[in-house]
Every structure is written in structure tokens, then in C-alpha cells.
Amino acid sequence: AEPEVTLDLGYASAESGTYHVLATEFEKHAEELTNGTVDVKLRCCTQLSTEDEAFRGLQLGTLDMYIITHSNVSPHYEPMDVFTLPYVFEDREHGRRVVDGQIGDAFVEQLYEDTGIHLLAWGALLQRDFYNTERPINEPADMDGLKIRVPRNEVMIATHEAFGASPTPLAWSETAAALQTGTVQGGDNGTTLIKSQKFYELADHLAILGHFSYFNPIFASDRALSQLSDEQREAIMEAGRRASESHAEIMTQRVEEVRAFLGDEGEMQVTRPDRAPFIQLAQEVQDRFAAQKGEAFQNLLERVRDAADN
């Protein structure tokens, strides 16, 4: 059928990144499930907006849909920062249990109530891998004094401080140059980004620490969804769920491929440190932030922790 509604789906990364995979999956499912009555247009590479401004743009209705890393949402919606806490999920299954189950549903509902934004798809649960130019990381002592690039996020800064490193908040755009000149000696990013940005040419050591997990959810504005019929809305929601599932599958495989690439062709020395001592250090950060934050944050953290024991 002829498209009745066009929805622009924006994201920050280039056409090879993990956002793009999620966006492509979503486009496929959405157009299929609405019989082509909704046309989803992919707008990569910050063409529509930067990720920092996107949440506000969605609230204002100046954007239809946008993929935003969850930690960029937390300044707008504090409970989101629960997912930023170091080692908040025991493993990938724990993470999926949280977002795909009741906790996730309640979270999405509350998010809409508090911010007016729809979360359509959580996307895959991914991890930031840690790279540095100095030495292989096997235990917390190896982190000592490393100058680490971090985004401007208190939790991430506090975590690296707890590990013994000295974190430096730096804009993403300056990271590559700063690594080369030695302004910073390491950092952490999604595995695929480390490959696509060719950081393996700059840093020799990769540690699969699993300290930070992240989602790249697709968010939609009320204004965009209000243009849809009930059927189309239902279909779009379903498209979000399906896109999330296939994104998780694709990315799980891809991340392992990329890690293998970084070790072989990338010539990085890959370590998989014992997590126990890191988790111990991280626990203190978790507790400290939980104490600082509001009730909504604490309740969510409680429920997430409970879900680990299942």
C-alpha cells in the first residue's frame, strides 16, 4: 500500500554501527507489519539531531523517533541511571529478564508518565570493553593511575576512580586525538565502535571487563505516534519488540566476531580478567549512588537486584 505516514528515525552513528542494525531491523518489521502504510526513513550520522539534544527534541515533537544510549537519557530521567551502575547485571540473561519482563514494562510506563516519551524497543544489551595504550589489565592494580577518557557521567567517573584509574571527561569527538597525543591512555566503548573507529591501531590492550552494560533504545515522540491509527500503533509497538529480539541475536554474534578480530588482525592483547575483585570495588559505587538518588531510583535498583536471584 501507499505510505500514509512518514516517520524519520534518527541516530548518531554511521551506517555500519550497532544503531544502524537496530534501525534497519525496526524499519523492516514496521513496514511489514503496517503493510507499508507507515514509511520509516533512516537518518544516520546525527543528520537530524545530536544524541544529546534528541530527548528534548522528542519531548517537543520536533523529532519523530531517535535511538539514544540509555546513559544519555539519565540527565532527563534519573532512574535510567540504574542501568549505568557498574556490574548492575550479573550477566546478559539477567539484563534481558529485567527489560523484557515486568520490571521493564513498568519502567516504560513510568517513563512515559514522567517524560512524555515512548520507549519502543530496548535493543540488545551490550557491554563496554576497556582499551588502553599502557598494559594488559588482569586485576584492579593494573588500572592504577591510568588516564581514562570517560563521558561526562558521574557514575562512570566514580567507577573508574574506584578501580584506581584517573578518569578524564572528554567529548567523544576529541577522544581519538587525545589517545594519540597521550592526553588520555585508555577508555571504554562498545566493542563494535572500538573496531569501526580503528582504536586497535591506537591502543594495544583490550580487557573484557563487563563493567558497564548499555542499551540503545528507540524512543518515539507523542506527536509522531498520535498521527497513527490504533492498528498502526499496535504494529509499531510489535515491530519494536521484534527488532529488539533480532538486534540482540545479531549483536551477540557480532560482538564475539569483533572481539576475535581485535585480537587477531587488530593485534590487541585481549585479557578476560577475573571479575570478582572489580565487582567488589563496584559494589561500593552502587551503594553510594543508591544512597544519593531518589526513591524511584532505589526502588528500581532493588527490583533489578531481586531479579538476579531467579
Binding site: T50, D52, E53, R56, L60, G61, T62, A171, S173, R223
Partner: peptide, 19 residues
């Protein structure tokens, strides 16, 4: 058909990149 509030938002965010 994009709300004009984008203009207001941009009047501030345009200057936010640190460089």
C-alpha cells in the same frame, strides 16, 4: 510541519559543543 520550538531549543543547544 516541524514545531517551531525547535528554533528555541537550537538557540541554546547550538552553542553547547565545547570546541
Amino acid at each position: 510541519d516541524i514545531p517551531l520550538t525547535l528554533l528555541a531549543q537550537s538557540a541554546f543547544t547550538a552553542f553547547e559543543p565545547f570546541p
